[in-house]
Simulated scan of single mutants.
Amino acid sequence: MYILGYDVGGTKISAVIGDEKGKILKKVYRRTTKEYGKSGITSELIEMGEELIKTSGIKEIYKIGIIFAGPVDAENGIIISSPNIIGLKNYNITKELENHFNVKVYLQNDASASTIAEKLYGSAKNLSNFVYITLSTGIGGGIFINNKLYKGAHGMAGELGHMVIMPNGPVCGCGRRGCLEAIAGGRGIARRVIENISAVKNSTIFSDMNPADIDAKKIFAAKKAGDMFAQLIVEETIYYLAVGIVNIINILDPEAIIIGGGISMEGDDLFRPLKLAVQEEMKSMKRPVKILKALKNGADLACIAITEYKEQMLQ
């Protein structure tokens, strides 16, 4: 039984064909156009889906999953608002695809969907209580409590990046000051370098770099190359992340924290010091909480996972 999945993000849209066991057969990409609007995004998704079905050599699809970078009403298949694509506010994106492909279509926020993928296909298979954190341009996440995705009273649980770590710190995109995302998300890490570069003279790499070209990946690379300024920024970032993670641990007492997103690709350069920092930050509240790396292809599997999870919940 083949499943068609879409990942609608701020910079790209991907579509995959996979099965319920999490095997991905084929994948295509398109660059996101901010001016799609309702008809434009719908036409793009239909075209990508038809292309995949044809080139994969399959006869039919069983269901469709869409993950979206923004707040959604998953129960009703509605995009509540769209930070990256104009004109999608309160849009029922599932209805048109259901009419075209004649199968059930499921919608979920991308961070929540990745959390579900970890439960079905990743290191959370045997866990009942865990938290997933995505470290990318921003910071998001999802929470499983007693084997169920925790949605909250308004379906917006898991906004982990918007806990305040530094009162009166930098302004976050949400409007508050000192959120974890504003300090330790990819954009926040780069901002801390750009704002301090003129005051710090011992950087051997960033002093001659165009500020617009500085990002989290380059900062971690500079740290590996021995740049003292980059090392300071990375160490600060890990401390802020540890503070946020320990806050989550103290509130929810999970079995594990699973970390994904682009910054997680730094591997041991992130995870080794982060685990030590979390242990140190827990002080007298220590407990055996694992810090685990997320699936490498979590976004692809998330499209598939939301369809399987939803049907399991309906049984």
Results as ranks from 00 to 15, higher is better:
170 P>F: 15
53 I>S: 01
30 R>L: 15
230 A>P: 07
208 D>V: 14
313 M>D: 06
69 A>F: 11
260 G>D: 00
183 I>G: 04
138 G>V: 00
96 E>T: 07
57 G>M: 08
98 E>G: 09
297 N>F: 07
310 K>I: 12
25 L>G: 02
164 V>Y: 07
45 L>D: 06
185 G>A: 11
105 V>K: 05
145 I>V: 15
256 A>C: 01
193 V>C: 04
41 I>H: 03
192 R>C: 06
176 R>N: 13
221 A>Y: 09
184 A>P: 02
38 K>L: 05
231 Q>K: 15
206 F>R: 06
75 E>H: 11
132 Y>G: 02
11 T>F: 08
306 I>R: 00
17 I>L: 14
143 I>G: 05
117 A>S: 12
183 I>D: 05
213 D>T: 12
118 E>P: 02
307 T>S: 11
97 L>D: 06
214 I>D: 05
305 A>S: 08
35 E>V: 04
240 Y>K: 13
308 E>R: 14
110 D>E: 04
27 K>L: 13
295 L>V: 06
71 P>D: 11
179 C>K: 00
243 V>E: 05
235 E>H: 11
18 G>M: 11
270 L>P: 07
124 A>M: 03
118 E>S: 03
86 I>E: 11
230 A>H: 10
159 E>Q: 14
90 N>T: 09
110 D>Y: 01
250 N>K: 14
